[in-house]
Structures are given as C-alpha cells and as structure tokens.
Amino acid sequence: MGGFNLQVITFGKLQAQDGQGDALMDIIRQHMDYLKQQPGLVQGYVARCNGNSNKFLVVSVWANEEAQQAAMTRLSTDPEATKGFLQMMQLLNGQPDFGNYTVESIVK
C-alpha cells in the first residue's frame, strides 16, 4: 500500500449494573484521560445510550495498528490503569463487548 498506514478503530460496549451508570461513566472518563495521552490516538468518544443511562459505547480511533497496540501494552502495565479496569469490570452487568477493526474506507 505504498507506506500508507490504515487507521484502527477499537470499541467497547458496556452496560453498568442498575444504578451504577454514573460510577461507570467516571471510570470511563479516567480511561479516556489516559488514552488521550497516548501517541497515535486520532479521536476518542464516549457515548451514553439514549433511553438507557446504564449503557455506553466507547470508541477510539488510532493512526495505525502499531500505535493502538503500543497504547494497550502501556495500559496493561500501568498499575493505575489496571486498577481502573478492574473497578470498571465490577460495575458491569454481564461481559463487555470489545472490538478491534481496521478501517477499509472513509466517507466524509
């Protein structure tokens, strides 16, 4: 592809236990503060479901797969980030749905 690096999009669909939506939002914000310090992050989004304040969609767009993988490696070795992830898991109703996708096309 002539040196062109394809962007990568990661997402997490999370549902908090009843009454834990605001607490989960606080932890997600802390996670996003960590992500925005990472090289290669293009954009990050946190969205709350219309009609269900316990459901969230967290999306990050990375310049390329290498940047995303490097950030995840740093995240997994950072004690504060690991603590936040464990706190988040305790607030969830069921398992999160995580995905990692390579961008094939961009339309503006």
Rank of each mutant, 00 (worst) to 15 (best):
A70P: 01
E80C: 03
M72D: 01
A70Y: 10
T77H: 09
E80K: 11
P79T: 04
R74P: 00
N93A: 11
D97C: 02
Q87C: 07
A70E: 13
A71K: 04
F98T: 01
G99I: 05
M88R: 15
P96L: 09
L91P: 02
R74E: 01
M72P: 00
L91H: 07
P79L: 10
F98Y: 13
F85M: 10
Q95K: 15
S76P: 00
S76I: 00
P79H: 07
L86F: 15
M72A: 11
T73E: 12
N93W: 11
L75E: 03
T77Y: 05
A70G: 02
T82A: 13
P79W: 13
T82N: 07
A81T: 05
Q87H: 10
N93Q: 14
Q87V: 02
Y101H: 06
M88F: 12
T102S: 05
L75G: 02
L86Q: 13
L75A: 15
G94Q: 02
M89N: 10
R74T: 00
M72E: 02
S76M: 09
T102Y: 07
D78M: 09
M89G: 03
F85R: 05
A81R: 04
K83N: 07
Q87S: 14
E80I: 14
T73N: 09
L75H: 08
Y101A: 09
A81H: 06
L86A: 15
D78E: 03
Q95F: 15
Q95D: 13
S76L: 05
D78C: 08
Q95W: 09
E80V: 12
D97A: 08
T102G: 01
G99R: 06
G94Y: 09
G99H: 06
N93K: 12
Q95M: 14
Q90D: 14
Q90E: 14
L91M: 13
A70R: 11
L92I: 04
K83E: 04
D97P: 01
M89F: 11
G94L: 06
G84K: 08
L91G: 05
T73Q: 15
N100P: 00
E80H: 08
L75K: 04
P96G: 04
T102P: 00
F85Y: 12
Q90G: 04
F98G: 00
M88G: 14
P79M: 11
F85C: 01
D78Y: 09
Q90T: 03
T73L: 15
G99V: 03
L91C: 10
D78P: 00
Q87T: 05
A71L: 02
L75C: 01
Q87M: 13
M88E: 12
Q87E: 15
L86G: 09
E80G: 06
S76T: 01
M88A: 14
T82S: 09
M88V: 05
F85S: 02
N93R: 13
G99C: 07
Y101Q: 04
M88I: 08
F98A: 02
G94D: 00
A70L: 10
D78S: 08
T82E: 03
Y101K: 05
S76D: 03
R74H: 11
L86H: 14
M72C: 01
Y101N: 05
M72L: 11
S76R: 11
M89C: 06
P79S: 07
K83F: 11
T82G: 03
T73D: 13
L75T: 03
L86W: 15
N93I: 02
L86D: 14
